[in-house]
């Protein structure tokens, strides 16, 4: 296979931009559901009998942590698939889901601190749930850092996959921390047993709209991050192919075929589309 063909193949196998019709639909759905969440959070629900106005923070706080759990589980599953199949799709999915999961974990910690200030009188207490969530945040921060280090694709992906698999085991202590240790943090509200007793009516609806809104937002972000990572990888590969072709051309200055390959590969690496499209 010629360098030109390799470059074309690498560029054309995956997405050609970060957006698509599906991502635009997802984006619009995300904006609509977030707008609905804002309406339910500030207009359609009343202050809670016990928590007062601070209950509104929970319509964001609870959905963000639930969505983050889902993304970190996705990361672990994709990591296992990567270790077994050395599949680029799985690697980029693992990376994208961890990054968005980390973002949502951070948002959970921030909203939790904002809720804690009026409720507990302080932004931070060394509570088991808060502490284990912070540890999990730091673990995934390490994971994202590891992914960002320069290195060969398979080596970097393998190391990241192992860290992703080990890190997901932290989910269980975080989830169980309110049961294992005496905690200021309340137990399960929406997904636990006392659902009907603790939350109902528009409050319950607001919470479920929050779950939906953050789920759509997370999927939208993951798809974009995935496509961006794929394009970065393809650009790196095609640039390398173009470099190799250029060096070969320099060694054989009389070869017009190689020169054509060089310019074609360079055009692909610069995102100008496939060589055939240019010549038509």
């Amino acid at each position: 296979m010629t360098e030109k063909a390799t470059a074309e193949r690498a560029a054309l196998q995956g997405p050609l931009s970060t957006g698509s019709r599906a991502t635009r639909v997802l984006g619009l759905a995300s904006i609509a559901s977030l707008a609905l969440l804002v309406f339910y959070t500030f207009k359609a629900t009343k202050p809670d009998v016990e928590l007062g106005e601070t209950v509104r923070i929970l319509y964001i706080h609870v959905p963000t942590i639930s969505t983050a759990y889902l993304l970190l589980l996705t990361n672990a599953v994709a990591s296992v698939v990567f270790l077994v199949k050395k599949n680029r799709f799985a690697d980029h999915l693992a990376g994208a889901s961890a990054e968005v999961g980390l973002l949502l974990l951070g948002l959970t910690l921030v909203t939790g601190m904002l809720w804690g200030r009026p409720t507990w009188g302080t932004y931070w207490v060394w509570d088991p749930r808060l502490t284990t969530t912070l540890i999990m945040f730091l673990m995934y921060l390490g994971y994202v850092t590891l992914r960002g280090l320069p290195g060969e694709f398979v080596t970097r992906g393998t190391r990241a996959a192992i860290v992703g698999i080990v890190s997901v085991f932290m989910l269980y202590p975080v989830r169980q921390s309110v049961n294992w240790w005496s905690s200021l943090h309340q137990g399960s509200t929406a997904l636990g047993r006392p659902l009907k007793a603790e939350i109902s009516g528009n409050q319950e609806l607001a919470l479920y709209i929050g779950f939906l809104a953050f789920l759509i937002l997370a999927v939208w972000l993951v798809v974009h991050r995935f496509r961006l990572a794929w394009l970065e990888e393809s650009a790196r590969e095609t640039s390398l192919t173009a470099e190799i072709a250029e060096r070969r051309a320099a060694e054989a200055p009389g070869s017009t075929t190689v020169r054509a390959d060089v310019s074609a590969a360079a055009r692909v690496s610069q995102g100008a589309g496939s060589p055939q499209e240019d010549t038509q």
């Binding site: 994971y143 320069p150 290195g151 192992i162």
Partner: peptide, 30 residues
């Protein structure tokens, strides 16, 4: 056991001395 997993994971990178604590210490917190 966790050191035997994380030591090799962080090895070979530029600045791996800083990468290992970043990966390893949060895992050791529990």
């Amino acid at each position: 056991a966790s050191g035997a997993i994380y030591g090799p994971l962080a090895a070979g990178f530029v600045g791996s001395e800083a990468v290992l604590p970043l990966l390893y210490l949060p895992v050791l917190t529990p």
